[in-house]
Design a protein around this nucleic acid. Structure first.
Lengths: 156, 156
DNA sequence: TAATAATAATTGAAGTTTATACTATTCAAA
DNA sequence: TTTGAATAGTATAAACTTCAATTATTATTA
């Protein structure tokens, strides 16, 4: 195990955490994406189905905010889901700028078929940690994510 | 705070961790990518420069394994860095299938200019956690990443 | 009310990403 | 030693991703 201090203790500690966080995410995300691919979906497509399946009708803007993604990107992903007949668009009556997206019957069926299986698969992966480790880890990650998100964009 | 048990305790615990992990990664990665963009680089381009800057000459294959990325992808990223004159390719004399990639003088200069500043920025973000929290978190993430990576691909 | 600004989504260009297929080189074995 | 398998990297197609520019709609304000 490398313990060399290269940039000072504080920096090394933080960089090490960032490396471990990136790595853990990448490893699990890769397997999760492979699992989703078995159902004929890409990972971002699955995320949209999951959002709509759990929360119902959402606008493009709401989807982008939930997934930290650009609007242009969401338009493309929704286009591809629409081609497959899994979701459909409709204009909001009160504000015609807004496009609402919702599952079709086919999309709803697909969501039901996939979600539980995928959840079991993720649970299987994560269960390499004890329940206490899982809740400790989740607590720390929640704190990290929330505070960093609130940091001022322009603070360097 | 939602505490509804929807899919059973074990599954809810694991899914919650996966959500928090994805979120924390996404939030920090977004800011890190924005920081890197200030230097005229994309995030994967920066990763390649960082690897080469710290480890010296590496093959395409070594780079893909370090970054959990496909070889086709690495070819493209290295192509783009080569266009900018930041890296250069050379064939390995002993095994002419292997392409070694290394920083040019320009790339090395860029690496020196960028890395410390970016490291300071990441440290600034991560420092919303105490040092103890950082080391606890890093330890758990390391365990999670390592064990999941070793899981058999075909185990479902 | 008419001009201007703000908001929501889309489009287009450039880059990233994967999977698959392909080329070149090396290794293994009949 | 020649055939066949394995390895390293590249080319291609389809999808994702961002940013910047554009269109349509709504809100503001002079």
């Amino acid at each position: 195990m490398k313990t060399t201090k290269k940039y000072g203790k504080k920096t090394d500690l933080a960089l090490n955490l960032w490396v471990k966080l990136s790595r853990a995410f990448a490893v699990i995300n890769k397997k999760a994406t492979e699992d989703i691919a078995k159902y004929g979906l890409t990972e971002p497509q699955f995320c949209v189905l999951e959002c709509l399946g759990h929360l119902g009708q959402l606008s493009i803007g709401e989807l982008t905010r939930k997934q930290l993604v650009s609007a242009g990107n969401m338009t493309v992903v929704v286009n591809n889901l629409e081609k497959e007949g899994l979701v459909e668009r409709s204009r909001e009556p009160g504000n015609r700028r807004v496009v609402k997206v919702q599952l079709t019957a086919k999309g709803s069926k697909k969501f039901d078929e996939i979600f539980l299986n995928h959840a079991k698969y993720i649970t299987h992966l994560i269960s390499v940690l004890t329940e206490k480790e899982q809740s400790d880890l989740a607590k720390l990650l929640k704190k990290l994510g929330l505070i960093v998100q609130q940091l001022n964009h322009n603070t360097k």
